[in-house]
């Protein structure tokens, strides 16, 4: 009776996939994103707060920026929010948000209540832009240098530790001295 073996077969497939999953797991410390060292994707998206304006990669050239992918539906983003506000408060590096698969009204009221750490926010309701950045879970944060190259990627909610030990040291010295 072959059909009684189906559950076992399914288990084998699941275990194999999970085993592959472990090895490709987004290990924050070990495996860098394939995008690191590569140019950040070019984008031109409507602004979340002002649909008539655009947020473009071209306009961001020449400055360091942190590109943070978030959404109001993402619980980890709620956790991360206070730390983002703290980072914005240092004034060391502007935060550019990508509001991912979200509704505009919800996102705006969310920022109004919790505070807005972002200098600009691109609105990506369909989730296409996030695919170009290789995002598969919010929040993810990219550090982009003035030449438009992705220097570092952080997966999951940014902690004070990650900010101080992973992101801050990658910013040029002049920039960090000004703040500390």
């Amino acid at each position: 009776m072959i059909r009684y073996f189906i559950p076992l077969g399914v288990l084998v497939v699941v275990v194999v996939l999970l085993a592959l999953g472990i090895h490709q797991a987004p290990r924050k410390d070990l495996v860098p994103s394939p995008l690191i060292g590569k140019p950040a994707p070019h984008f031109a998206l409507p602004s979340l707060t002002n649909p008539d304006k655009q947020v473009t990669s071209a306009a961001l050239r020449g400055h360091w920026y942190l590109f943070n992918v978030w959404g109001t539906w993402c619980v980890s983003c709620h956790i991360e929010e206070p730390e983002l506000l703290a980072i914005a408060h240092t004034g060391l590096v502007p935060l550019i948000g990508l509001d991912w698969k979200d509704s505009r009204s919800q996102a705006i009221s969310y920022l109004r209540q919790k505070g807005n750490p972002y200098q600009q926010i691109a609105f990506d309701p369909g989730g296409l832009e996030a695919i170009h950045w290789g995002v598969y879970g919010a929040p993810e944060t990219f550090l982009v240098n003035p030449q438009g190259i992705i220097v570092y990627k952080y997966i999951g909610p940014i902690t004070p530790h990650a900010w101080r030990h992973d992101i801050l040291p990658r910013l040029p010295a002049g920039q960090t001295e000004r703040g500390s």
Partner: peptide, 25 residues
């Protein structure tokens, strides 16, 4: 095991994931 990201995720290490996967397998 750290294959998924979530609020609840525990600090993960790959060895732990492999052990659990072997055990459940």
């Amino acid at each position: 095991s750290g294959v998924l990201i979530s609020v609840h995720s525990f600090v993960s290490s790959p060895g732990r994931g492999e052990f659990l996967l072997t055990f459940l397998g």
